[in-house]
């Protein structure tokens, strides 16, 4: 048996492809980010070492501040919308014991399987200032709330965050619903006998039992928000002005538009650190112990 499990050739065949791939495509570039963030570099030459200059420049750049703030707004919005609303809807779906439960799951999950570009462009047409669905709706209802949704410096980031939240709500909803269904029903029967209302039962049983699920959902929502890029790239191009820049967007535009690769790497290294901190904090906050039924 010992020999069976320490077959050197087999171990090499099993492990090496993954390790090599990981080192070349993930780990080596990761190291590069931190090294090259100390260089002034145009992506072609060797670059010149400028120590912390990229970082001091970052801290003086007002776009950097906007980017960090937008990342936090995006992450908060996703968390409230997807986990908050997702939880309420999952409770509701688990409580009605009919066939329609499956119907809601399908309808909520549909946007997840659409291409992200389709979703962004669909919402671009909904938010269109002249012809969009939303403004037409206000017109019909006689409410004077029509506006150019994406050209408002303060609100554009929320509109963009909403589109991302809308697309992936179904994913979080399905995860939470699956979590609820994995809780043994006799817990609820016991609660019912003790006279608890369904809402009380959820607050006292479901939420604590879902700690593991929530940890995963939170990591998805928060890191997803901090990394946001695609939505702003398609919907606003970072604008109006730089008001919907995020760290990823900033990195993209410094490197691939302005050709300042070193400066872009400094934003990238911030991105990595930010996500690491977020993940560690979430894991610390929500205890790791597995619940055994």
């Amino acid at each position: 048996m010992q020999k069976f499990f320490s077959n050197k050739k087999a171990i090499a065949i099993f492990v090496l492809p993954s390790l090599i791939l990981f080192i070349v495509v993930v780990f080596y570039p990761l190291i590069q980010i931190f090294i090259k963030s100390f260089y002034e570099w145009n992506g072609l030459s060797k670059g010149t070492f400028i120590a912390l200059e990229n970082y001091t420049r970052l801290f003086e750049d007002s776009t950097f501040e906007t980017s960090i703030k937008n990342g936090l707004i995006f992450a908060t919005f996703l968390t409230i919308y997807q986990i908050g609303l997702g939880t309420i809807l999952a409770f509701a779906a688990s409580n009605i014991k009919t066939k329609t439960g499956g119907f809601f799951r399908i309808v909520y999950f549909l946007p997840v399987v659409l291409s992200v570009t389709v979703v962004c462009q669909l919402w671009l047409s909904v938010f269109n200032a002249e012809y969009g669905l939303l403004n037409k709706l206000f017109e019909i209802l006689g409410i004077d709330f029509s506006q150019d949704w994406l050209s408002d410096r303060n609100n554009a980031i929320f509109v963009v965050a909403f589109v991302n939240a809308w697309q992936y709500l179904g994913y979080q909803f399905a995860l939470i619903l699956a979590g609820i269904k994995s809780i043994p029903t006799h817990y609820y029967e016991a609660a019912q006998i003790d006279g608890a209302s369904p809402l009380q039962a959820h607050l006292k049983i479901t939420i604590p039992m879902l700690a593991e699920t929530y940890r995963f959902c939170l990591v998805l929502a928060i890191t997803g928000g901090l990394n946001a890029f695609t939505q702003m790239f398609i919907m606003t191009n970072g604008g109006p002005g730089t008001s919907t820049y995020t760290l990823t967007y900033m990195m993209y535009s410094s490197a691939f538009r302005a050709g300042e690769y070193g400066y872009g790497m400094a934003s990238a290294s911030f991105l990595v650190i930010q996500c690491l901190i977020a993940t560690i904090v979430i894991n610390k906050l929500i205890a790791r112990e597995r619940i055994v039924y």
Partner: peptide
Amino acid sequence: MKWKGQNVARIFVSIGMFIPVQSILIP
């Protein structure tokens, strides 16, 4: 399987979970 460094290798690769894809775009 039993080999030296199996835990190190596993933890090393799991770093990948915490690295946003976007951050390594430039390299």
